[in-house]
Structures are given as C-alpha cells and as structure tokens.
Design a protein around this nucleic acid. Structure first.
Lengths: 250, 250
DNA sequence: ATTAAATCAAACATAAATGAACATAAACAA
DNA sequence: TTGTTTATGTTCATTTATGTTTGATTTAAT
C-alpha cells in the first residue's frame, strides 16, 4: 500500500467515524506511529482533518464553523495556516504588535508563548485577547474604520510611538518589489507606517494572492520588510532575497 | 473520546439551551472535575461559553429566558433600563464619552441619535459600535484590564486629553456625598478622571445599589457630577441637590 | 451573622503522546 | 557504480492531558 492510499483511507475513516487514534491507525496499517503522525500532520495542513492529542477528529464537526462571510473568502484556509505559522514565531516574553487585517486576525487564536505583550489596533483582536489573562494587551485606540475594524489616525499613531516591540506582524493588500507594500486607505497606511517605526523586526503576513498587487496608498518600500510569512513563493522571489527579505512558508 | 470531542459536545450541550454543571459533565464523560473545569476555562477563553460558579451557560444572550449569569445580577433589568434612559439623553450631533462598566455597556444598544461621535475605553463597546457606520467611534486605547474589559493607563489618558465632549456617561462602583465617587482599581480611577476633565457635562450612570457604597480608589468628589441617571433616589438626595446634582430616573 | 457544604484554583504527580534528531533501506538518478 | 531522495523506523527529551490533594472562595442554610 502506498502512502497516498493510506492517507486517503485515514481521511475516510475519520470523516465517517469522526475520530481515530494514532495507535489504532498504526496497527491497522502495520506502520509505526511516527508514520501515522506524519500522515496526520499533512492531512491537517491540507485541512482535511483536525489533529488532537492521541489522534485526530473530523474537521467538519469541530468547534469553529466558518461564518458565511468567512466561507466566501477562498483564501481563508491559507490565511489561517499563515496566521498559525506567524503565531509560532512568537517566543516567550516577546513584545509584539499585531496589525489589523483578515490574515493577522487569526494570529491570536494560535498564540501559545508565555509572558507575551501584545499591541494591536484591531477591534477584533482586542475583543478576543481581552479574554486572555495570560498576556498583557495594549490597544492603540483611534478612530474605528467600519470596513476593516482597524483603529487608525493620530490617536493610534501617538500611542504606537510609545512602544518598541520585538516583532511586528503586518498585513497589507499588495506587495511588489517595484511598487512596495500598499493598502487602499491612506490613513490606515500612515498608521501601519507608525507600527513599522516602532518594531525591531517586521513580518509581513500575507497570502500569496497579494504578490504583485498594488493598492492606492504606499505603506513602505519592500526593503523595510524583514520576513514574509506566506503560503507560496512569488515568481520573483530571488529579488526579495536580494533585498534581504526572508520567506517563511507554512 | 478525545479532549477535542469532549469539548465540542460540551459546547453543544450548553448552546442547546441547557446549562451544565461541572459535576454532571464529569460524570457524563467519565473524567475528573478538574478536567471539566479546564475544558470550560478554554471554552470561555475562546468565547464559546460563559462560566458560572458550578458550571457554565451559553454565551449568546439571544435566549428569551434570562440566563444564569443574568439572573445572578439582580440589578440587570435596572441596568438596562438606566442605560436606555441615558441613551435617550443624547442629542443629534452630540459628542459623547462612554465609560466602560456593566451599566454603561448597554448604552450603545439604545443609541438612536444621528451624527453622534462616541469616545470609549470599553472593549465591548468598541466591538459593538464598530458594526455601526452611522456614527464616528473613537477608542481611547490603553492596557486592557481583563476583569472589566476597560482600556486604561497612560495611553488611554493621553488619548482622552485630545478630546472635549458634550456628555460623559460615567460608571462607578460606589457614590456617596461624603466619600465621593469610587471604584476598586486605582488605574481605572485615574482614567475615569481623565474622562471627566474632557467633558462639559458628567452623567453618572449607576443603579441604586451603588449609593453609599465606597470602593478603594477615589475618582472625584460628588460635586463633579452634574446628573445621576438611576432607578431610585438615594435617601440623602436633598444633599445631592444641594451640590447641584440633578437626578434622572428611569 | 455564622457555619457547613459545595465549588474552585493552584500545585504537584504521572503516564501517554509527541516532535525532533538520527538511522536505515528502498527507489531513483547521474 | 555512486550519490541522492523518499518513506519509514527508532530513540529520547519534552509536552500534554489528566488526576489528586490542599487550602481558599463561594454559596446556601441556619
């Protein structure tokens, strides 16, 4: 039996029976548990199952049911994976800024590090993080933009000037070597710029559909970015490397 | 059964309207109560349920019947009525500040006036108001206090200094002629003071249980208050009148 | 207001499961 | 042939899920 066949059967088993143990699967297919774990890891990455300690469960009947609006976004799965990856880059006792945005949004859910201080201008992140008492959460404040639920403007910017963080997780609508990092709204762009000023390392968190896109307002030239967390390399990724930008793939 | 499955079922049970006791769930799933508590803790963190002493209830307050947690606060109905009254005091084109707090919380729901600009330091209010595109919403920012979901501290205060509003709707834990307006946390008190500084008129929004209560941190002397929106006059209301404080009853 | 019972959080203990590093062997390519 | 890749197995330090105990809180009853 080939690995692919085995994986296919594992998905079947889990989807029909709703859960399966690593030990059971190992016995069933006559392979080591390490192999099963590797299979499950892959299947989780492609969103076909959800792993648990000891095995895996169907992704369908698990807690988070994507809302209607979320389902409409075909890059949702990528976004969530990218956010998970980004969250894994946070070390214990880091101070970080998380920008508002459809991808960065999900970082909170996967933040596991201890003693983290988070600065954010996202209403959604503020709401989610306000439930966690294992980290310090600082909100920038500012005028709320209904469309993006970001807090922006002078209030946000003057708050951002107060802090120096280790890592910034930045979202945007377009990134290109030639045209830089861009977003549609000029006030939001200015606020993002303030975030960049206060961060030691800048992680751009985008799905691959944003490469070579260009929006109206320039945030900064591409060279300001230190890392790009994404799901696929752009075609001209050599040029990014040349600028000293490192890629972190999910 | 995996932890994930168990948690999923717990959510189901609770969302389907049934409250659940820790002891019942432990027996049902054949695990220790400590495990159930840990499950509930996590589910509460992700906002899926709300814990109570002895168990948990649904977080979605769409229930027709007042949930456990609501019943626990016997002043809830008063709070909501008071908030409704407070909201009715807002005129078209007013600029207002709404403090965080269990009573002020509800004001957003009843805000009908047009062209209003709202300043708030409440995470919950920011979240609720961010959905409305008929008003400008400015968030103070600041460090989030997990307990009260208020944003406080220097960031909040320096933001508040930027604005002059027509009306402030202030919450507190105690008000007395002699001891003034008080709240348990000193940082929160300082932030409330900053709100008062920037407001032309101060409306204290409290249910009648707060009269003659005294908490640790002084916000301001009673004389700073212009109006008190509440459900019942205090015994010494003549003294309040003497200070020029007017009562607005629901 | 006091007391008793229920519930809780925190600290500790433990066994199972895991991830990471390394090892092996078959398949493949030069 | 020889080197490289791929899938798998093995070992072990670390993490996770869970249970247990204990002292503190909360609630309910007197």
């Amino acid at each position: 039996m080939f690995a692919e066949e085995r994986k296919g059967k594992i998905v079947e088993i889990i989807k029909s029976g709703n859960s399966a143990k690593v030990s059971e699967l190992a016995k069933l297919f006559n392979v080591s548990e390490a192999t099963i774990r590797r299979d499950l890891m892959e299947l989780e990455q492609t969103g076909q199952i959800v792993r648990t300690h000891g095995g895996a469960v169907s992704s369908q009947n698990t807690n988070f049911e994507p809302s209607f609006i979320e389902k409409q976004d075909k890059y949702l799965k990528e976004k969530e994976e990218i956010a998970k990856k980004a969250a894994s880059l946070v070390s214990d006792n880091d101070t970080i800024t998380i920008d508002s945005g459809t991808t960065t949004q999900f970082i909170a859910k996967y933040l596991k590090a201890k003693g983290v201080t988070v600065v954010t201008n996202s209403v959604n992140l503020a709401d989610e993080l306000s439930r966690r008492d294992d980290m310090e959460v600082i909100v920038t404040g500012g005028v709320i933009r209904t469309k993006t639920k970001a807090m922006v403007g002078p209030v946000a910017e003057s708050a951002l000037k107060q802090f120096r963080v280790d890592k910034l997780f930045l979202g945007c609508n377009g990134v290109s070597i030639k045209m830089g990092v861009t977003t549609p709204n000029i006030v939001e762009a200015s606020t993002k710029r303030a975030m960049i000023e206060g961060a030691k390392e800048v992680y751009l968190v985008v799905d691959s559909s944003k490469f070579d896109e260009v929006s109206f307002s320039l945030i900064c030239p591409a060279s300001k970015i230190d890392y790009i967390v994404t799901d696929k390399l752009p075609n001209d990724y050599e040029k990014y490397k040349h600028l000293g930008i490192e890629f972190i793939l999910v």
